[in-house]
Nucleic acid binder design. Sequence first.
RNA 1: CUUAAGAGACAUAGGCGCU
Length: 407
Amino acid sequence: VDRLVEATQFFQKMVEKRYPHNEISYGVLVNGLCKIGFVSMAFGLLRVMEKSGCMPNAVVYSAIIDGFCKDGLLKEALILFSEMVSKEIPPDVITYTSLIHGLCKYGEQEDALKLFDEMTEREISPNVITFSILVDALCIDGMAKEANRLLQMMVQRGIEPDKITYTMLIDGFCLIGEIDEAVKIFDSMADKGHDPNVITCNVLINGYCKHWRINEAIKLFEEMSHKGLKPTTVTYSTVIGGLCQVGQVVAAQELFNQMEAHGQSPNILTCNILIDGLCKNHCLGEAMRLYHGMESSGLKPDITTYSTLIDGMCRAGKLKAAGKLFSCISEKGLSPNVKTYTIMINGLCKEGMMQEANELFSQMEEQGCTPDSCTFNTIVRGFLQKNETFEAIQLLDEMTKRNFLPE
RNA sequence: CUUAAGAGACAUAGGCGCU
């Protein structure tokens, strides 16, 4: 994939020299294009393929369908799916699984389930991946118990869950705060021949951290090396976040400084997590130091870095500095997003600077950044606290029009 | 018998409420 340009050129050369391509060479290139996000080009290649008399197969279709789904282009994916059906190219389990994944990811669970039934009708058996995707979808919706039942069902149908399935379920139980159930599953994995891997550990560590059980998180973190598992940047970032959450910023900073020596470099996310932790523990100076340190270590602060710092500054009462940093964002080649605007608007509201807040609110729409319900609620609250009822009512009206729920 | 192209899991920022 990292040498796709060369691959494309060679592919073209073969065409010029009249070496015919077969479905596999097309398949390789289509997949490469999809993987680097050039799905429409891959789609074009499918048309070329047809014209050159090489019948596209399910592999080519599935790769593009998957590419469309990953870009959120569900409609295009579904159209391509019906196209292959009408051309009597039978979709297989991977085609269905790609679509089911895409639909679940964008909240279309019902349609995903329809496809799941449809594939059974066509006697295409869902496999462990298909089931796992549904398990994950249930978990994400806070239905880990239902996901667990689905897992039992797959076992009954003779499909063995794998490490990934169990990891999803552990994550699901953590999400609803049932850490002990998550631990039970984690502990039972080895018996089933699926030793937890780094990601499984990361998920459980995250569960502990998010539920304030930092000591258990650290215990598992330390046990990892005994199990022959090397903590990754994600592991470190998770623990750093967990330490900050319980107020142990110094320990978090120490871990941050140690990770490099263990061969794991902090990335932007790691920095952002620590910057946020420092801000929330009233160490704005340290946060700024880290921010400045990022650039010298070759990490470009992203929009989350700026939003985090601006929020920290506002909460520290440094509204002026916050405003200054906000206006720096575009100089850095970044654009504020909804959260950045809302943070800044909230800062202004808290200081009673409603005129400035309102200006920024109009400005964001002009810049093509649509306020969400959180932005609206923030500014409405600001107006109400200053008894500027008229403005508040206007905004509430606007909220109704946009189908947002006022608090 | 061997070989080639397609699907799944982890860590960051905002208002209010809940603890």
